[in-house]
Design a protein around this nucleic acid. Sequence first.
DNA 1: TAGTGGTCTAGACCACTTT
DNA 2: AAGTGGTCTAGACCACTAT
Lengths: 257, 257
Amino acid sequence: MDATDVAAVTPGPIADERPGGSTVSGDRLPKRYRVRRQIERIIGELDEGDPVPSERELAGRFEVARETVRQALRDLVVEGRIRRQGRGTVVSRPKLVQPLSLRSYTEAALSLGRTPGRVLVGWDDVPADAETAAALEVPAGATVMQLERILLADGEKIGLESTFLTRERFGGLRTGYDPTTSLYAAIRAAGVVFGSARERIETVPASPREATLLECTTALPMILLNRRTVDTDGRPVERVRSLYRGDRLAFEALLRE
Amino acid sequence: MDATDVAAVTPGPIADERPGGSTVSGDRLPKRYRVRRQIERIIGELDEGDPVPSERELAGRFEVARETVRQALRDLVVEGRIRRQGRGTVVSRPKLVQPLSLRSYTEAALSLGRTPGRVLVGWDDVPADAETAAALEVPAGATVMQLERILLADGEKIGLESTFLTRERFGGLRTGYDPTTSLYAAIRAAGVVFGSARERIETVPASPREATLLECTTALPMILLNRRTVDTDGRPVERVRSLYRGDRLAFEALLRE
DNA sequence: TAGTGGTCTAGACCACTTT
DNA sequence: AAGTGGTCTAGACCACTAT
């Protein structure tokens, strides 16, 4: 189905009596929500991957400013209903739902039927910031290893992951470990048995660097996961900071008494 | 400390050579990120609850359009660094970190040293939507009870919670249960033993109704939790849809092998 | 090269709250 | 009455991409 086919779906301009440059409509609902509902009707008729009409065309069709259309589209991007892609905007796939577990990203993605991948961004010795130092139980400013990778699902960039490890315990990974493979497998192979982890989950905006790396140009809301993992003796193993595209991923937890 | 005292912190307008109405600065970084950094410097000098300079004043000080300042402030709101409040904008408190567990909101808030509260929004018989019907194992469109409440922490509105229950099993709660108290306590008192729950966590924008109820007028990113709880026999107990302000809350999970 | 989304400007009116 | 954030307009230039 082509985007031009859906013109019949939209009945016409959005009702608004006020003349002149004025704006705030008499009713309470901001105009962008009515625009949004119209756009939802359009994309409801489209299939996954179909192009959405351009911002300028939607603005003209609904007789609103382009900025107003953009605000409506922004909501739909956050919800993962549409996606900006190369040239235009297209209808997107449903969010990937990843379980919160001690398993690695590789294992989680595979169990969901997706093909995992990683792109190495950097593997450097860096001074530990306050949070990393506390997590790894090293003095503030001590040198630790940082492994930063982009996470892929079926080739799509969905997250950015930084793992911090002490050189004392894991310096050996520098040789013989391929950073595009599962780190957890390598850590286990080094004889470490994962015990438990504490993970903090919140929403943050993407920074310019992160947006560039993940190819989402806007300041999209992201899901930030901060994990501290210890082994069965309670000794720190890793600190991980994972930033996932909020429009592409959701997480799932299993809770027990 | 007063917001007017920090003028000395800001060195002056943001560097940008281009003349005329043009915009996109020669360097790659959008102007709003430099504006944001300037504002961060200002609020770094302020204490919790202090007023942030007004949007118009910041725009004048940095010699940018007010919309550009608003984009920068939007990021800081999402991160929970500042908060819109009545008249102006103020520096906010750190996020509340709530554990993901089978415990009720009441128990979680108390264990964090916060005073929990609830405001009843509605308690009605409603037709089950597809998700609710599946969760409660009733036919689609069947009538179920919906209990909708605003969640408070120290009097502040931080979330909106809808609980769906079957009338067959929990119709008795209609009499003798005060909806501003803990629902979980009442359910337990009815002889139900919670078994486990599956919870989905994601980021969504707030709808106009939700923003109004939570008194966050903007389309702020929210954290949406969808929970399905079953008893020890695996029978469905409840479906809960909780929407938390992403700028006020974070969540924490404990992971084990 | 034409069209797209990304960014920014300079204005305007509104509802609301504080003074 | 004055000031705040919330919303919207009508334009503009840019980098990028598909044609």
